[in-house]
Amino acid sequence: MRIQDSGAVAGERSRLTGIAYRLLGSLTEAEDAVQETYARWYALTPARRAAVESPGAWLTTVAGRICLDLLGSARVRRERYVGAWIPEPLPDRTEWGGSGGADPADRVALDESVGMAFLVVLESMTPAERVAFVLHDVFRYPFPEIAGIVGRTPAACRQLAASARRRVRGERTASRPDAEQAAAVRRFKEAWEAKDIGAVVGLLDPDAVMTADGGGLVGTALRPLVGARRIAEYLVFIAGKAPGLTLLERTVNGRPGLVAQHGTDVVTVAAFALDGDGRVTRIWAVRNPEKLTAWTTPAGGPGAPYEPGVR
């Protein structure tokens, strides 16, 4: 049962969820971590809560430690994960149809730091690097406060963040304006729907990589597909094996992407990265149904198509 909080403490929930999602790559786990944070807050006696000078700082410290512990156990779980693990995709507010009744876009601001490419880079970091980098570079927390969360000195935290920053710089891809990415995704959708292998190949970088996440629950490629023609042939093959599949242009983690529906069921959410010439370099296709609960079709339809500049 969800704990009801109020006042200034309640106002921290959105920020804490945003931090936890970036740290964990899962909205479900992020919400659980935040709920545990609030449970610990309300487990304090009224006198101890009154003695806390900054409830926001206290909640952030506890949430950060919970996420740090979860990241350690997540690395072990993901070693047993079937196939590739991709962060849980976030819908735009018009797409939200989950059971919680709240809009994830109201809890997690859809900016560059929740883009799929950025989240995938975060997955390559150690838990301590990820916590130090996200809290400092994204949320501007000072290193002395971060030190209390990761159990290191401020100087060590500074080094952790610097190491993480180098990883981000090394993996950073060209960022196209939303309108350009939307147009590229639309062309890709049309070529895929037409089952035109040549057209799909022409829209992909020759060394493009497609990674799919089925979690062992649905059929999908277990290893990344590398190369434009291999990806195109695979996608056209899949389209031929799934009659009735509908492709929709949707916002995925704040950027133009595609959602595949079979009937009323969302079966795949795809995020894209483009190069400086507008060709697709990376595709992340999430098919694990446990990661698609936020994409349940809300009453009244599947949501609005992507519109640049509209959130």
Rank of each mutant, 00 (worst) to 15 (best):
L122R: 11
S124D: 12
S124W: 06
M125V: 12
A128P: 07
A128W: 10
A128F: 13
E129A: 11
V131E: 01
V131D: 03
V131N: 04
V134Q: 08
L135H: 04
L135A: 09
H136M: 08
H136E: 04
V138A: 12
Y141R: 14
Y141P: 02
P144L: 09
P144H: 08
P144T: 02
E145Y: 14
I146M: 07
A147Q: 07
G148A: 04
G148W: 07
G148K: 03
G151V: 15
T153K: 01
T153F: 06
Q159S: 15
L160K: 14
A162L: 15
A162F: 09
A164W: 13
R166K: 11
R167W: 15
V168G: 08
V168S: 11
R169D: 12
G170F: 13
E171G: 06
T173A: 15
A174K: 02
P177C: 01
D178Q: 13
A179W: 08
A183H: 06
V185P: 01
R187M: 06
E190N: 07
E190A: 05
A194H: 00
A199R: 00
V200W: 00
G202R: 00
L204P: 01
P206L: 01
P206S: 06
A208H: 02
V209W: 06
V209M: 03
T211R: 13
T211I: 02
D213K: 02
G214C: 06
G214P: 04
G216Y: 07
L217E: 13
G219N: 14
G219F: 15
T220V: 13
R223C: 04
P224G: 09
L225M: 03
A228Q: 03
R229M: 10
R229G: 11
R230L: 04
I231C: 05
Y234C: 04
Y234L: 06
F237I: 00
I238P: 01
I238N: 13
A239D: 12
A239M: 14
A239F: 10
G240A: 05
G240W: 02
K241E: 13
A242S: 11
A242V: 11
G244S: 10
L245P: 00
L245N: 12
T246E: 14
T246L: 15
L248I: 05
L248Q: 08
L248F: 07
L248E: 13
